[in-house]
Amino acid sequence: MERIVAGNMGISPGIGAGVGEAAGAEPFADALERRGLSLVRGEITTLQVNTGYLCDLRCRHCHLEAGPGRTEIMSRETMAAVVSFARRFPFQVIDITGGAPELVPDLPFLLEGLAPLAPRLMLRTNLSALNGAARESLLALCVAHRVVLIASFPSTNPSQADAQRGAGVTETSIAVLKKLNDAGYGVEGTGLELDLVSNPVGAFLPVSQASAERKFRHDLLRKWGVAFNHLYTFANVPLGRFRTWLLRTGNYERYVKTLVETFNPSAIDRLMCRTLLSVSWDGYLYDCDFNLSVGRPNGERKVHVLDVRDLPPPGDPIAVGEYCYACTAGSGFT
């Protein structure tokens, strides 16, 4: 099994262009039209904030090609603009993601600014970036503001998880999960929520969320004595480094074909992009993190959060690409 190697593998400009073409997939927009469906906005309740592409890992499934070599990170000035935006347009949920947000120097400033503005503030973590004494104060800040932690944990099999995330990452992840449990995260009655996200460790679809959650809960407790609240399973999106891996290993065509064949029309209404806006590290609005990764802004025009007068109204179209099949496969990316 291949291992993730150190060093910059490079960034592919325009990586979204042509997705699905090699596999002869019907354009996603056509697939919707043929079924009389449309993907439009509902009421926006979630603000996703992407703090940039710097990461300590170089995960093989990363659609953003985040890694140690990336220099795009959110500045304090942009953070202030995001906080101002979230104050003007209240959201039910604010979801901070990356890269590894923990590596962004002014993350505490962003957390403190956003915490009073939404009932639910989430921070996505790859766990390894939360490791070490230098992160103690960040963890304390998360506890103080009841920040929901969403941790990547793809598999309870260390060799498979390490194959996706890098050698030794599982061991570090378990150590951090134990530390989070010690701090009260994932422990019943504390109000500190710790959720896990599992992306498949290969070119196959994810297991159903309910059965995966049962199995992960059992395995994590039995093997390592670790507890968590909820588990989410998401299909890998054929963009960025995952697409490169699919192509290099000869899995691309079959994977895209599987996504297309398992298209679930009833997933459309529940897609997270209908109720979410994504802000990039430099402060521009996108429909979702995947459109961000291919450089397609909300409304097909780059608008900075400082310049937004109104949120996109219900019924506004959402930019789609062939990678959207990953969100509509099976039970969908909801």
Binding site: S155, N157, S159, P200, F204, P206, V207, S211, A212, K215
Partner: peptide, 11 residues
């Protein structure tokens, strides 16, 4: 393929 998609791991 089915085992992986149903959530079994390589172990």
């Amino acid at each position: 393929r089915a085992c992986l998609e149903k959530g079994s791991n390589l172990g």
